[in-house]
């Protein structure tokens, strides 16, 4: 085994983690560390907790359900529901274990409804990934989780078949389920680059959300990301994601390297995380 090479790799990884935390404390973020072992009480599981269970390693110990942390934002949301955090912005680093995977997340959360503060936080994280981690972001996909709530009934939004068809952008299937005149079908029938303007022109209820997408997209275009697309049919993984959601890709990986967005639990907030695997760090 080439220990010299291995030593260098391990030191480099630890150094990058230290550097990330150091960088963001200088930018005024407080550091947060939480246990990788998470405990759930059977009688206090929320619908969002239940939803994550299929994507977690879990085991039972007496009357508790134990799990490994699967996502930092999810852990912070649950922590803030239970305890008061005396800070408006935090940075963190640590491993996460969604089912069948091991990842390292470096991320930031800002507990403020101020859009400009949220956008500043996004820019700081993007600057870090582009300059300090030398990652070239090639594609940004921007969604707004309030859009589908305005186009579909509550029953449709909870229908697993419709959710599956939306997730796969299966237009034929949606026509079959909803009919050709349905706003979702009309919007999805447009070419992808035209969908945002079609939504704004044809559906006045969507105007505010579409304008928010346009505003956030303009910032991303200034960050030297060659391709910025809006995905109007994205469904949130958790119900607390209620506004803008962002995914950033490099040319090397299929999975997004940065994800995050606006959420509301227990107050309005914004969080983004860099998802690193051994391939990238």
């Amino acid at each position: 085994m080439l220990f010299e090479q291995n030593n260098h790799h391990i030191l480099d990884k630890k150094h990058k983690e230290w550097e990330f935390l150091h960088h963001f404390t200088h930018l005024g973020y407080d550091l947060l560390d939480l246990s990788i072992l998470e405990e759930f009480k059977w009688d206090r599981l929320s619908p969002d907790d239940l939803k994550t269970m299929t994507n977690r390693y879990t085991w039972q110990s007496n009357d508790s359900l134990l799990s490994l942390r699967s996502d930092w934002t999810d852990s912070i949301v649950r922590y803030r529901k239970k305890y008061k955090l005396q800070t408006s912005k935090v940075a963190y680093s640590g491993p996460v274990y969604p089912y069948n995977q091991e990842k390292m997340q470096f991320g930031v959360e800002i507990f403020s409804e101020s859009i400009s503060k949220q956008q500043d936080s996004m820019k700081e994280l993007l600057d870090y990934i582009q300059t300090s981690l030398n990652q070239k972001l090639s594609v940004a996909v921007i969604s707004h989780y309030s859009l589908l709530k305005k186009l579909l009934t509550k029953d449709d939004l909870e229908d697993p078949d419709i959710k599956h068809l939306l997730r796969e952008r299966n237009l034929d299937g949606l026509i079959h389920q909803l009919g050709t005149e349905h706003p979702v079908v009309q919007l999805m029938s447009q070419p992808v680059p035209d969908q945002l303007h079609f939504a704004k022109a044809k559906f006045p209820d969507l105007k505010e959300s579409v304008n928010e997408i346009i505003e956030w997209s303009a910032i991303l275009e200034k960050k030297n990301i060659p391709t910025v697309y809006s995905d109007l049919f994205s469904l949130p993984a958790q119900s607390y994601y209620k506004g803008i959601f962002l995914q950033f890709y490099t040319d090397q990986l299929v999975e997004p390297i940065v994800t995050g967005g606006q959420y509301s639990s227990p107050t309005k907030a914004f969080g983004m995380a860099i998802n690193l695997t051994d391939l990238t760090y």
Partner: peptide, 13 residues
Amino acid sequence: NKHAFFSKNNEIQ
């Protein structure tokens, strides 16, 4: 592919 659908949308369309 979900990523290519956006990054190569013109060619796919």
